[in-house]
Amino acid sequence: MNLHSPRIELRTSPHVVKGLSVERIMFNVVLALLPIAAFSIWQYGLSALALLLTVIATCLLSERLFNYWSGEPNTLSDWSAAITGLLLALTLPPSFPLWMAAVAGCVAIALGKAMFGGIGHNVFNPALVGRAFVQAAFPVSISTWAPAYASHRFTEFIPTTLTLPLMTPADIGPWAKQALDGFTGATPLARWKFEHVATAPYDLLTGAATASAGETSAILILLCGAYLAACRFMDWRIPVAVLGSAALIAWLFQLWNPVRFPDPSFVLLSGGLMLGAVFMATDMATSPVTPKGVWIYGAVIGVVTVMIRYFGGLTEGVMYAILIGNALAPLIDQYCQPKVFGSAGRKT
């Protein structure tokens, strides 16, 4: 008789168990972000690498410290702090001084996450909270851009990167001019807003335009997003709703006044809209859970982004649009509760 005869287990359905744990989702998001990070290092060299490492390290360290102080178990292994760090670094300009990046990372975890009680409890996307803080604190540095593909990018830092803590970074102008002839230091959005020059879609698609470290290549972001959506680690409806509503409203504006307003493709491909729509608006803790709510949420973000870009004082609106969307998410969910079967028409 075989001692190892198969035992018969009796269980109710479901029979196929697929471990869709927090760790697994988060790990895959990290995987999907890695190509974008790698491309940003290829474009900006040492400075981008240092920026990524600094922000991720500060986020992990802050997370550990807040865990320790609040007596919670260690949550470093769920990858969420690493994602916050990665995303935050990718939204910062490549020339951003490291000490400011560290401030951003610390604030992202402290104000964006720990204050609400850790992973899953946060109301706003932590990476964007960190970015909003440094945007308000260091408005000059966060709108100073460096040229991509500088010739010595793998052997030397962008001069502003290594600014001493608490000190003002040096003027990047002379270095940028010498690194890339004719570099103006303005993003495509700023050039559209102030100079009425629309950048060619090809440059926006492939990453030759001036931008934050990780928002340059729309193709790469879409591919990575497609991987996540295909594996069902991400709700595909959100990026579709964000991009779709932004394109729709941009198209309406262009119909109304083709001289003043740019092509919808420019709106989709410029700035941080792609990265925001694919990786930040889709954060599970801060987006609605109902299917109808998800569409409304995405549409709000897309429309607000375009409104800020067209009529606001800032050139870029994705960050505030997503934060506003985050704030509305619980309300949207409340109004989009699915009706219980059979309850329709019953008066309470």
């Binding site: 001084p97 308000a136 260091f138």
Partner: peptide, 16 residues
């Protein structure tokens, strides 16, 4: 306190 090169945290003198 920090010499002429200090980078002010603009947000601190604003309401937030």
């Amino acid at each position: 306190l920090f010499g002429p090169d200090f980078q002010p945290w603009v947000v601190m003198v604003l309401p937030p």
